[in-house]
C-alpha cells in the first residue's frame, strides 16, 4: 500500500545558538491521520524545532514543506494561514478576553473579513457559533464567558488547543499539551486528541509516556538536537538505546 504524501515534511533542519547545536540535521514528517510523537530529555531541542517549523525562529539550514510547499520564507502568520496550527509549551492566550473571546479571535482569522472596524465582534454570530463549537469540542462551552485570566491552568491549556483547532489547520504542533493537567486531565484530553487526529494530524511533544504510548502512531526520539531513534511505540519501548538516553533519565 502506497503511503499518503506527508502533510508536513522537515528535512536537514539545523539551528545553532553559538556553540550549542540545538537542531542537528533533523528529518521528520507527519502523515495524514497520524499522531507523530516527539520525545526526548529536557533541553533536547523539541521546542526549538517547533519554533522553526512555525516560523518564530529562522533555521540555519534545511527545508520545511507544508502540503508540498516550501514555507521557510513565510512569516509566522502566513504559515498559520497556510494551515499550521500550534500550541505553546507555556500557555499563551489573551488573558483580558473571555474564553469565548479568545476562541472568536481564532475564528475571525479564518472567517471572512479579518478587518472589521465597526460591527461589534461580540454580537457577530458568524464568529460566535464556530467559536462555541470549538470550545465545546474541548469541554469548555460551560466556561465560555469566564475571563481567560480566571480559568484554571488546565482550562487554559484546553482553550489554547480549542483555538488551534478552530483554525482548521492542516497539521497541529502541540508542545506538551498535557503538562500540568494532573492525572484526571490527561485521559479526557487524550480522548479528544484521538478523536481529532483523523481530520488533523499532529506532532505531539509530550513527557507523559503513558499518553505518548497510547496516542502515538509513530515516535521519534530527539537528543541533543538529533533524531536518534524513530519507530512504533513497541519499538521505542523495546529499544535499549532509548531507555538509556531518555527513559533511564526520566
Amino acid at each position: 500500500m502506497a503511503e499518503a504524501a506527508p502533510v508536513l515534511e522537515v528535512s536537514g533542519l539545523s539551528k545553532r545558538f553559538g556553540a550549542l547545536i540545538a537542531t542537528d540535521a533533523v528529518d521528520l514528517d507527519i502523515r495524514p491521520g497520524e499522531i507523530h510523537a516527539l520525545i526526548g530529555p529536557n533541553g533536547a531541542g523539541k521546542s526549538t524545532l517547533v519554533a522553526q517549523i512555525a516560523g518564530q525562529l529562522a533555521q540555519d539550514a534545511g527545508e520545511i514543506r507544508l502540503a508540498g510547499q516550501e514555507i521557510s520564507g513565510l512569516s509566522v502568520a502566513a504559515r498559520a494561514r497556510a494551515g499550521l496550527g500550534r500550541t505553546f509549551q507555556v500557555t499563551s492566550v489573551a488573558l483580558e478576553l473571555s474564553a469565548l473571546g479568545n476562541a472568536m479571535l481564532a475564528v475571525q482569522a479564518r472567517a471572512s473579513g479579518l478587518w472589521g472596524f465597526w460591527r461589534r465582534a461580540a454580537a457577530d454570530r458568524r464568529l460566535i457559533e464556530p467559536a462555541m463549537a470549538a470550545l465545546a469540542r474541548f469541554d469548555l462551552d460551560g466556561r465560555a464567558q469566564v475571563p481567560a485570566a480566571a480559568l484554571s491552568h488546565g482550562e487554559r491549556r484546553q482553550l489554547e488547543l480549542a483555538m488551534a483547532a478552530a483554525l482548521a489547520p492542516r497539521v497541529l504542533l502541540l508542545d506538551e499539551p498535557m503538562a500540568g493537567l494532573g492525572a484526571g486531565g490527561v485521559g479526557p484530553l487524550s480522548d479528544i486528541l484521538e478523536g481529532l487526529k483523523a481530520e488533523t494530524p499532529m506532532l505531539l511533544i509530550e513527557h507523559d509516556m503513558d499518553a505518548v504510548f497510547r496516542l502515538a502512531d509513530r515516535i521519534s526520539v530527539l537528543a541533543e538536537g538529533r533524531i536518534v531513534f524513530a519507530g512504533s511505540a513497541a519499538e521505542v519501548q523495546a529499544s535499549a538505546l532509548v531507555r538509556e538516553i531518555y527513559l533511564g533519565t526520566a
Binding site: 502568520a77 500550534r86 481564532a106 483555538m163
Partner: peptide
C-alpha cells in the same frame, strides 16, 4: 498582550 499569539492565529500584528 501577545503578538506571537496573534501571528499564530494567522494575523500579522
Amino acid at each position: 498582550m501577545n503578538p506571537l499569539r496573534l501571528a499564530t492565529l494567522g494575523m500579522e500584528p
